[in-house]
């Protein structure tokens, strides 16, 4: 019995030991980024490597803020917010329609909407670029917003929550003479607010991280989002300005990490739900 207890303790210790080792590997690149963003460029790559900045400086941050990163930051923020609000709303609306109404062709419609979730970018990007070129909205922020107004994933997620809304609530509102849109906005939406919040965070993070499409359509500098501004800045130089690029990386990562720390529970729930139910 004693042996068993000892081996159990050793097991627990080893378990935590490996898990903490894993945590260090996970966090190390991010910590390195943060510390190195305060080093002068010449010290980022130094032999032997130094972990803490020995001569901490803010010059990297000054450089990138002089180089318009403030504008990129604002572009990313407002575009990501729009790219969150619109699909969250359409997801709630469509989720409600697919969960609570029976109409001809419903299943096929649902399948079509869900299928859009799985369409790889490779088969849409060329015609989409061509279309936006023809109607003249390349290099405009609307080009980033339009393709994301409907989210198949979002419809799927909110719909599964809609089943929990009791239909009797809607029935009694109808008897009271409430219009259908009124019922949706005043009664149903508040009840699924947690699901919408979880979805909203995920969509915001996706929009913030979006790279390929904005990289393709945005050409004028003042329109860049943060990810594009950062990479164009890095690609501009033959010898990469390590310090400023790392400072830019911190500026692009810090807000999402803060959002993550504050809203961790919702994010984890939203993502686990999508996976486990799917």
């Amino acid at each position: 019995m004693k042996n068993y207890k000892v081996s159990r303790k050793v097991g627990h210790f080893l378990n935590h030991f490996f898990l903490i080792l894993g945590c260090i590997i996970t966090v190390y690149p991010l910590v390195w980024m943060l510390f190195s963003s305060f080093k002068p460029t010449s010290m980022v790559m130094s032999v032997p490597p130094e972990f803490f900045p020995s001569q901490p400086t803010l010059e990297n941050y000054q450089t990138i803020f002089a180089d318009n990163i403030g504008i990129y930051f604002w572009n990313s923020t407002y575009i990501s917010i729009i790219r969150t609000i619109i699909p969250v709303y359409t997801s709630a609306l469509m989720g409600y329609v697919f969960a609570k109404f029976n109409f001809r062709g419903k299943n096929i419609m649902f399948m079509i909407f869900i299928a859009t979730m799985m369409v790889p970018w490779i088969v849409t990007i060329i015609p989409l670029y061509n279309m936006f070129n023809v109607i003249g909205i390349l290099d405009k922020h609307i080009a980033l917003i339009l393709p994301t107004v409907v989210s198949g994933y979002g419809i799927y997620l909110v719909r599964s929550f809609m089943f929990q809304v009791p239909s009797s609530l809607m029935e009694s509102a109808r008897i009271d003479g409430c219009g259908e849109f009124m019922i949706f906005h005043k009664i149903v939406l508040p009840l699924v607010a947690p699901a919408m919040a979880a979805l909203g965070i995920i969509l915001f993070l996706q929009a913030w991280d979006d790279y390929l499409w904005p990289f393709l359509v945005l050409t004028s500098e003042e329109k860049y989002t943060l990810t594009i501004g950062l990479s164009k800045y890095a690609f501009k130089q033959y010898t990469v300005a390590y310090g400023p690029v790392l400072a830019g990386a911190v500026v692009s990562i810090l807000p999402v990490v803060i959002v993550y720390i504050v809203l961790q529970k919702h994010i984890v729930e939203g993502i686990s739900l999508g996976g486990v139910k799917g």
């Binding site: 990810t227 950062l230 990386a249 999402v256 990490v257």
Partner: peptide, 10 residues
């Protein structure tokens, strides 16, 4: 959750 392009640079 970290920005992909930024972590790739890191």
């Amino acid at each position: 959750i970290c920005t992909m392009i930024a972590t790739a640079f890191v």
